[in-house]
């Protein structure tokens, strides 16, 4: 009987921990979504003047560019993937295409 109660309580603890983890991951993924959207907006504003979208001064863009090397590289990897949208879509579905 004692073993049964101990096992039940153990599973209850795991269950509560699981729920906590799920809530945490849910919150983090919502934050991550806002983060990536804000970063995309920021990069669009900063890089806009260099590609003909008038947002801020082009010199201001270049000044900020030196501090955004990592973000530019990240943007590159996303854009490079974006060149083959169909391939990306098919690979996301799995299997050989």
């Amino acid at each position: 009987m004692f073993k049964l109660v101990k096992r039940f309580l153990g599973e209850l603890v795991l269950f509560v921990k699981g729920i906590n983890r799920a809530i945490l991951e849910d919150s983090v993924s919502a934050l991550e979504l806002e983060y990536s959207e804000l970063e995309a907006a920021f990069m669009t504003i900063v890089l806009g003047p260099l590609v003909g979208v008038k947002t801020v001064s082009p010199i201001l863009s270049l000044e900020l560019l030196s501090t955004l090397k990592d973000e530019v590289k990240f943007l590159e990897s996303r854009a490079l993937k974006g060149k083959d949208l169909l391939g990306d879509l098919m690979s996301s579905l799995g299997g050989e295409w």
């Binding site: 260099l50 590609v51 082009p58 270049l62 560019l65 090397k69 530019v72 590289k73 943007l75």
Partner: peptide
């Protein structure tokens, strides 16, 4: 700096940016 970031910026066709930037409005 633009040359260093060149591989990234090719995607956005930014290679010639600094060559013509001095003529950009506001410079």
């Amino acid at each position: 700096l633009v040359a260093e970031l060149f591989p990234s910026l090719t995607v956005l066709n930014l290679e010639d940016v600094t060559k013509v930037l001095k003529y950009a409005p506001g410079v």
